[in-house]
């Protein structure tokens, strides 16, 4: 799972002077920051600050009009989500995006798509290499299911699950990609305290066990301070602070803009 020659603490992703507009709406204005290998990087800010848009730029859903994104030392042009995924970037969504009609198991299996190497059409013939491969991937997926403690819902269509569990399945699907960079968009939103604690534990475990680099959008400041190594703060599409949790917490602009308004 280690990146091409990158060690812990090296720059995995660099965002430079990125601006993104939708017609007249400036979602992101001239934002720069970096994500280092192995760290948990939080992105915080009030609603509409441009956090989700930033993740969308990183995984190729949106294409910023200005600025550059460098991943593993290579500056990217306009890139498709397919390419981002195949380079090891996985994500979850703010409003859970699952395959609702499919089971937990199948949802997570879909996360293995890019890891399946036998040619696409081979699959029609369910014997030989394709079958062996399927079995191997299945084993990997079962491990993730154990890890996330969702054995009991393996065969349940995810549309029927409560929100908290859906978020967990979505994390499972992202983990199935064995990502190098994992983007989590408010993974704890709408959860109760116990579910939040579980999710925090999973995120920390992913980071420590697999060494996965994580970018985390989260509103709960307590959670952010506990989990993250460094925090970048956005407001109205601009970066207003960047640093360790302690530094950011003490920043007057952050207190005014974000902590002050009762989030």
């Amino acid at each position: 799972m280690s990146g091409a020659g990158l060690g812990k603490g090296d720059e995995l992703l660099k965002v430079e002077n990125v601006s993104l507009r939708f017609g007249g709406v400036k979602a992101i204005t001239d934002v720069s920051f970096d994500i280092r290998k192995g760290e948990i990087r939080a992105i915080i800010g009030p609603n509409g600050a441009g956090k989700t848009s930033m993740l969308n730029c990183i995984n190729g859903f949106y294409h910023p009009q200005e600025g550059a994104i460098t991943y593993k030392g290579i500056k990217r042009g306009r890139m498709r989500p397919y390419v981002a995924a195949s380079q090891g970037i996985a994500r979850t969504f703010q409003n859970v995006a699952l395959f609702k009609g499919m089971t937990t198991l199948d949802n997570i299996m879909v996360g293995r798509t890019l890891k399946m190497s036998s040619p696409f059409f081979w699959q029609l013939w369910r014997h030989g290499p394709a079958m062996r491969e399927e079995v191997e991937h299945r084993r990997f997926v079962e491990e993730i299911i154990d890890f996330l403690e969702i054995e009991h819902i393996r065969k349940v269509p995810v549309g029927k699950l409560p929100y908290g569990l859906q978020k967990r399945v979505e994390l499972g699907r992202a983990l199935a990609m064995q990502p190098e960079l994992l983007l989590l968009d408010e993974p704890m939103a709408g959860m109760n305290l116990e579910e939040k604690e579980d999710m925090c534990r999973f995120i920390l475990d992913v980071s420590s066990q697999y060494g996965t680099t994580i970018a985390l959008i989260e509103h709960d400041i307590g959670v952010v301070m506990d989990l993250s190594d460094r925090v970048v703060v956005l407001e109205y599409g601009r970066k207003i602070a960047d640093g360790t949790p302690d530094v950011v917490k003490a920043d007057q602009k952050v207190i005014d803009a974000y902590l002050g308004v009762g989030h």
Binding site: F61, A90, A97, V110, R173
Partner: peptide
């Protein structure tokens, strides 16, 4: 969008 995000 979920399908795209896993690289389909």
């Amino acid at each position: 969008k979920a399908a795209l995000s896993v690289g389909i």
